[in-house]
Amino acid sequence: MADFFNIIFSVDFGYAVLRVTTPILFAAMGALISDKAGVINIALEGMMLISALTGVIMSALSHSAGLGLLGAVIVGALVGMVLAYFALNLKTDVILAAIAINLIAMGGTVFVLFMVGGDKGISSSLASKVLPRIDIPLIRSIPVLGPILSGHNILTYLAFLSVWVMYIFIYRTPLGLRIRAVGENADAADSVGISVRKIQYTALILSGALAGFGGAYMSMGYVSWFSKNMTAGRGFIALAAEAMGGATPHGAMFTSLLFGMFDALSNSLQTLRVPAEFIQMIPYLATVIGLVIYAANKTEQIKRIQAHQNREARKGAQEVKLL
């Protein structure tokens, strides 16, 4: 048990939490923006995978990590556009279309990797680049907090920055207002002249681009290669994090950090004498528990509001009778 606490309260653990939260956070922001526009995007998993591979290939071809990132983000956005085309133009059930994208991503990335580098499952023959780490001058020298907060990959900082940007975007810009309007009530939004399709297209493209950042981080920051199915359910975990965070940027950030903590825990507990399989299970079980608690709370809330409304209505009816 002492070992356990030594691990939890170490600086390395704090650093690891931020490191593993990054991809989940990007994907959670992607889930948020599409959810706000009223479309569930379960293709985040596949989008991240495709972007992770694009990042590796682009950076290897161009010898530039920046161009790799750019490619990953653009391809992520394109996949978002494809999903939007099928869901909105061809009226495919958005969940089935997303499952299709995930399937294509699973096999397609292996296929393309083999065609480009001749590798099976892992990009060992591609000399891909890694995005730089950043030491923050003043913060670096603060004891305890310094080593936790400083020296991360640039995308880790960008991920946390994106939470703030997302907040401003959704709640403080005209486009954000339109996105929320479409998500709240598409017919009402349509009636005041907002093009629902255009807004949902925008949201899915942005969602794809955010997943693209997450994917790029996986293969050009978290590790320095692409491997088959390397996202390992992070896109799905992000969906749960977004739902549990009450569909707000900050809520989603805290739940992402929570899942990141469990993920980091599963990495660092591997040194303890607990069966590895149980430890690997932790993030997924934690996600289910979190999801249930959130959903149960929400159902309870709705019930309470309904009960309140009923009471008000009854009171109103009585008052009318009295009159």
Binding site: L90, A100, G107, G108, F111
Partner: peptide, 19 residues
């Protein structure tokens, strides 16, 4: 590579599910 099948599967699903 045999993974080409995944591409077929994906295209099939979206087209069949596309109303």
């Amino acid at each position: 590579q045999s993974e080409v099948v995944y591409i077929i599967q994906g295209v099939m699903i979206v087209l069949i599910a596309a109303e």
